[in-house]
């Protein structure tokens, strides 16, 4: 189970890295960033499916993966691209986080 959580953590880091690559590719960057997008997401999804084999339920793994990805991406956008992050937006991201977790956990333990 511990190994499952480690794999999940790596999957999340790769997801965020791939999303940053997508931003670099989309706005003014070289097309080569798209290679990072594809590689990052492919490996991230593979690790996500590996975590399921360690016994973590799909809804739990996917919920944490998606929710943490959203939060970390917002922080990365702020840190790397100087994006605006107001108090209202932080609360909104918090609500999105809780919402995604509720939907996925609710489907897992239905």
């Amino acid at each position: 189970m511990i190994i499952g959580w480690i794999l999940l953590a790596i999957a999340i880091v790769l997801e965020v890295a791939a999303t940053i690559c997508l931003r670099m590719a989309s706005v003014g960057g070289s097309r080569w960033w798209y290679a990072g997008v594809a590689a990052g997401y492919l490996v991230s999804f593979s690790l996500l499916s590996l975590t399921l084999r360690t016994g973590i339920p799909l809804g739990v793994a996917y919920g944490i993966w998606a929710a943490t990805g959203v939060a970390l991406t917002a922080l990365a956008g702020r840190a790397l691209f100087k994006e605006k992050l107001t108090r209202k937006m932080l609360i909104g991201i918090g609500l999105i986080l809780i919402g995604v977790l509720l939907i996925e956990l609710g489907s897992s333990y239905a």
């Binding site: 107001t86 108090r87 209202k88 937006m89 932080l90 609360i91 909104g92 991201i93 918090g94 609500l95 999105i96 986080l97 809780i98 919402g99 995604v100 977790l101 509720l102 939907i103 996925e104 956990l105 609710g106 489907s107 239905a110």
Partner: peptide
């Protein structure tokens, strides 16, 4: 489930707040 419907409402509220902010 009711838990999931609550989650959907949270997501909707969150999206509106983020965009308003």
């Amino acid at each position: 489930t009711p838990v999931m419907i609550t989650g959907i409402l949270f997501v909707m509220a969150g999206v509106i707040l983020v965009e308003a902010g």
